[in-house]
């Protein structure tokens, strides 16, 4: 597994986290620690519950067993008010950006500031322009979200999520469906934000190359378990067969190309009677 650098005071810690939707077990006693000030990637195949993990961390969902600590507060036990207080210190970047469609780019970024601070309009304007400048979209401040491309919408959402200078940002599939250029921009931005503002970043993704290029530490999830963890280099060198298949995008391996089925010949002989 290579050298694992355990931080003394992780910002997120799950203990025996279990979660199921109906009969489908999504997490089975998962223990994850996310170190402060680093970029941690959470990877895994589609449908392994990566987004669910983010929702558990942010308190949108409650685990059936086990618990989650964020900044030493036990998330499932917080009252709504306390949870909202905690959420002011962390942001989540949604896959779609989730900009408020009836507000302009400027108003979207200003929204959390107007809601949670008593700043003057002038101060808010300065802050918003700073944040927009950081993502390179100061010139787009008058546009409506419907006029933005997917990549631009995500950058605006990023500006919005750093508006309150959070301690941690959770990125939900930030690279999905992006062309190479905007993907490159996003990769650079995430790295830049993390280093410049001394934040913690959690990137949930299955885009291996981009994610590994910026991650300090990686967790790989599959079938409700942590199947690999470590620095990107250590995983490349010492991962299990499954991890190798995932990281190198091999079509066949421990995860089979074929969905479980009878022998093909048998299926043909049965002539559609089953």
């Amino acid at each position: 597994m290579g050298q694992i650098q355990q931080s003394v005071d992780p910002i997120v810690r799950t203990e025996g986290l279990s979660f199921a939707r109906g009969d489908r077990v999504i997490f089975d006693k998962v223990n994850i620690e996310i170190p402060r000030g680093k970029i941690t990637a959470i990877m895994g195949p589609s449908g392994c519950g990566k987004t669910t993990l983010l929702r558990l961390i942010t308190g949108q969902l409650t685990p059936q067993a086990g618990t989650i600590f964020v900044d030493n507060e036990e998330v499932p036990k917080l009252s709504r008010t306390k949870l909202f207080e905690l959420r002011k210190r962390m942001s989540m970047l949604f896959q779609s950006g989730a900009l408020l469609t009836d507000l302009t780019v400027f108003e979207n970024v200003a929204f959390p500031l107007k809601e949670h601070t008593e700043l003057s309009d002038e101060a808010i304007r300065t802050l918003v322009l700073m944040k927009l400048e950081a993502v390179g979209l100061r010139g787009a401040r008058g546009l409506m979200p419907s006029e933005l491309s997917g990549g631009m919408a995500r950058r605006v959402a990023l500006a919005r999520s750093i508006a309150l200078d959070p301690m941690m940002i959770l990125y939900d599939e930030p690279f999905t469906g992006q062309d190479p250029i905007s993907m490159g921009v996003l990769v650079r931005l995430i790295k830049l934000m993390n280093d410049a503002m001394n934040m913690t970043s959690v990137v949930v993704s299955h885009d291996v190359k981009e994610t590994l290029s910026i991650a300090d530490y990686v967790y790989i999830l599959s079938a409700g378990k942590v199947v690999g963890k470590g620095t990107p280099e250590s995983l490349h060198n010492a991962g299990s067969k499954w991890v190798k298949q995932f990281l190198n995008a091999l079509p066949d391996g421990p995860v089979h190309f074929h969905y479980p089925a009878d022998e093909f010949a048998n299926d043909l002989i049965s002539g559609g009677r089953s």
């Binding site: 959420r87 942001s91 989540m92 408020l100 469609t101 809601e115």
Partner: peptide, 22 residues
Amino acid sequence: GLMKSTEQLMAMEMMAVDPLHR
């Protein structure tokens, strides 16, 4: 419904703004 499906309501919750009130 559209605000819900485009995660706008969820995004508000994440910004510690209650969409029921707002």
